[in-house]
Design a protein around this nucleic acid. Structure first.
Lengths: 198, 198
DNA sequence: GTCTATATTTGGATAGAC
DNA sequence: GTCTATCCAAATATAGAC
């Protein structure tokens, strides 16, 4: 089907978008766990109940947020394909990931800390996360690293930096600025003997 | 004051203790964020309202849990003072920390992920955490590391391993088993040139 | 110190009119 | 598609009797 341009459908999609934007605003302001249907409705000029015309439940909203966050992360790291030098690429990838996490702590919490009681992302929402992880594994292999443990170490280091940054120095850069050093440390340990920077 | 043995005071303290134990049970069963005064009361054979005779608010309960968790962590890492070899001591310390985090994910969440909307630990509850951190800094310095950034990197690595473990492989050991390797990687990067294990 | 009773707030969700 | 009206449930917290 060629998806006929349907004004009604377009309007509907636009409102869904508006609701999600409002949800991010609220999460930014009050924290992920404090998102409430009432507030959300108020923010888009609706009663809370009307939101159910767009999302079947609150978790469905979280799920949509989860999905679009993962897509965004995937989009950003995919933009890295152009960088030739694999070492440089890995370093840049770490920076991108950290910026992504730190610029929106609620998003980081949603994606990586699983902190909302009862919420489990749907497989569809989760899928791009696996692509992003696979892409990270590729980048690591491109540096000549084949050790399977390295990828787990890599995710631990970078999510650890992000977590410390958001919970112990929100708004600052005390941990984010360690990104390059962390990558260097990681490479020194896992990459087959390579020249050190003088 | 020699704290006169007062049966009433003792009973009171015992009940507080009982309430906190029950709270940990519930957190273990339902997750940190789902702790509810009703359930808690039921678990100790009281109405929820009666709990207010022992704690002025729910946050006060979280605060007490926060405080005793930090004391417990401090206690465990302090037991390390006896280990002579500083490298061995650091390695052992990482393992202790990881076990501490992984054996009680709700505790990890409470202490390090700051996930309960509105809850801030009191300074008294937080104090032992700073002692534990100071103790970690000592252990790192004992390995000949003076770089101030190293301590931040150390906390990021270890809390990162703990977070990945609890949220992506709960009950398993996929990240915990990387502890020694992480310590090795850390030392190789920060410690003044030292003999590698053949 | 624990209870009953109740206040208060909050939040998710449904039914049905328009 | 949005509203009013409601429901229902859960949760924190207070007042006052016993």
């Amino acid at each position: 089907m060629p998806a006929p341009r349907d004004r009604r459908t377009e309007r509907y999609a636009a409102t869904r978008r508006e609701i999600l934007d409002a949800a991010w605003d609220l999460v930014r302001a009050n924290g992920l766990g404090s998102l409430a249907m009432r507030d959300l409705g108020a923010r888009v000029g609706m009663r809370a109940q009307s939101l159910y015309a767009y999302f079947p439940s609150k978790f469905a909203i979280y799920d949509a947020m989860f999905a679009e966050s993962n897509r965004e992360l995937l989009r950003r790291v995919s933009g890295m394909a152009s960088v030739r030098d694999p070492i440089k690429a890995l370093r840049e990838r770490a920076r991108i990931f950290l910026v992504f996490c730190v610029e929106e702590p609620g998003r980081f919490q949603l994606l990586f800390q699983r902190t909302i009681p009862g919420f489990e992302p749907s497989p569809e929402a989760y899928a791009p996360a696996m692509d992003a992880l696979e892409s990270a594994a590729d980048a690591i292999r491109a540096c000549g690293i084949s050790d399977a443990r390295a990828i787990d170490m890599w995710t631990a280091i970078n999510s650890g930096l992000a977590a410390q940054q958001t919970s112990n120095d929100p708004g600052g850069d005390r941990w984010v600025r360690l990104a390059d050093e962390a990558t260097e440390m990681f490479l020194a340990h896992y990459a087959p003997a390579r020249k050190r920077k003088a």
